[in-house]
């Protein structure tokens, strides 16, 4: 199948700066978002995801300007998430140059918002972001079984502090039914700890929905990226720190995956 798997560098942006935390705390500065996006674009990134983690209103305006600047320089798809609560937020982001918006918390408190957004702007630009934690472990039958069976993952909000009682796999199915065109799936257990994606969770969600799934949270090596696709079944893999701090370029990651038989867009 010629459709390529995607590598998506993720920029967590706070007040106009790229930052990267470990499990949503311990933040490090990683540069100007437009500069960072331009670098990834040159390296062959397939998309850029921009997560606005700014709390203040002034910060939100900064975000719109940053998205505008980014869209003037980087001619690949751009997904923007963080604080998307109303149709007006989506309209503003799309007008500023975003191609897709990621909805997270607002979907949990008001699932119909996803349906309204998909009807108004089209499913192709509505990404539902899911932050999940494992609440019971899958059972692994063999030593090299990376997926196991059973297990349960629950959705958490507020940076992983508040459980919602929602089952992550069931939630993904429901959101696709409401019009989500893509799922951005983050394992909060793995996020920032560089031990690889939660492959069992990724596999479970990929098997349950018929829209593209982006695996996120935990990439520490190129092998992890490849596993997300080959074992987890993800359509795209998202990573931040391995690219931000110069451990690997996107081009190296793509080359590595292509050598392992994964269909990639190589420049």
């Amino acid at each position: 199948m010629p459709l390529a798997k995607r590598i998506i560098p993720c920029l967590d942006v706070d007040n106009g700066r790229v930052v990267k935390g470990v499990q949503f705390v311990d933040i490090r500065d990683a540069g100007d978002p437009v500069e960072v996006a331009r670098r990834y674009n040159e390296q062959g990134a397939d998309e850029i995801t921009f997560l606005d983690i700014t709390a203040s209103h002034e910060g939100r305006d900064t975000t719109l300007h940053t998205v505008e600047r980014m869209a003037s320089e980087v001619f690949i798809p751009l997904t923007v998430g963080g604080g998307v609560r109303e149709l007006e937020d989506i309209r503003r982001l799309l007008n500023a140059g975003a191609d897709k918006v990621a909805i997270n918390t607002a979907a949990i408190f008001n699932p119909k918002f996803v349906r309204e957004a998909a009807e108004r702007f089209g499913s192709q630009c509505i990404v539902v972001a899911i932050d999940a934690k494992q609440v019971s472990a899958p059972s692994y039958a063999h030593a090299n079984d990376q997926l196991g069976s059973g297990g349960r993952w629950e959705i958490f909000t507020h940076g992983g502090r508040k459980p919602t009682g929602l089952d992550a796999v069931e939630w993904a199915v429901k959101m696709v039914g409401y019009g989500a065109g893509e799922i951005l799936l983050t394992s909060m257990d793995q996020d920032g700890v560089k031990q690889g994606f939660d492959l069992a969770l990724t596999h479970r969600v990929c098997a349950a929905v018929n829209v593209p799934v982006i695996a996120s949270g935990g990439v520490g090596s190129l092998q992890h990226l490849a596993d997300g696709v080959s074992v987890g079944g993800a359509d795209a893999v998202l990573a931040a720190s391995i690219f931000h701090f110069g451990e690997y370029t996107v081009a190296q990651a793509k080359q590595y995956m292509a050598e392992r038989g994964i269909e990639m867009r190589l420049l």
Binding site: M1, L3, D46, S123, V211, P212, D235, A236, R265
Partner: peptide, 11 residues
């Protein structure tokens, strides 16, 4: 079982 939308980079 191909996913819809057809989303991504294709030849």
């Amino acid at each position: 079982r191909l996913k819809v939308p057809h989303m991504g980079w294709n030849t």
